[in-house]
Amino acid sequence: MQTNPADASRAGSPTRPGRAGWGLIALTYVSSALILAMPLVLIVTMAFRNGLDAYLANILAPDTLHAIFLTVLTAIVVVPINIVFGVCAAWLVTRYDFPGKRLLITIIEIPFSISPIVAGVIYLFLYGGQGLLGPVLADNGIKIMFTVWAIFLVSLFVTSPFVARELIPLMQQQGGEDEEAALSLGANGFQIFWNVTLPNIKWALLYGALLCNARVIGEFGAVSVVSGAIRGQTNTLPLQIELLFNDFNVSGAFAAASTLAALAVLTIVLKAALERVGATGRR
């Protein structure tokens, strides 16, 4: 899905626009400003509308700080696990043929297109006190629902396909010739992966990890079902935003939102940078 601005041999290369072109461009300017940019501007304006001191006080409120901590912690736990899974899954479906492969790919992709509410619900039905496993686990002193563990688990579910989705098309397109060659030279599996495959997929891998990270940090629906909303304990940053909004603390809500918006901007800047490096680095 990447664009390759560096590829000049391609036919439909960008040209200087004519009169109709400028019309379309003007339309793009206006609509992008209204639809995409304005929400960002609003968040920053609202977050700082009571001045910098009020903003800092809002950000440093203990419950908001804890929410930031919990959100970062969740990303730190979830993203590496889903990177490992994504690489394994991509390697499996692009390097081997086996019966049931299409079904496996579909199962990998399910969390991507399912409503996050359903994601929360299925975990509640499994680990809840009236769920399938919840009572058994509770008898053994293991509590999952309404703890950070439940937040980790639903986040793992929701973002499990992100890395694999980026890697599979790329690894399919690249084929396995390089790896076959390395194999014939006597390299073992890990050497092949580390020295041959990884350099080829590193940009897509980072891109997938970046998307995965963004989604973990921002997940709302699934986490809202399993968190229990204990202030300063199981409230992630997106939940804290809703809580502050409902506490009549609109500037607090926007201050919290601004930290997530800043992360979002960082994400798209990094993504754009990755694409540029990736486009030149791949050829």
Binding site: L40, F220, E242, A261, T267, K271
Partner: peptide, 11 residues
């Protein structure tokens, strides 16, 4: 264009 993917939906 990528903003909607990066920006949390609650935000």
């Amino acid at each position: 264009v990528d903003l909607p993917f990066a920006l949390p939906t609650a935000v």
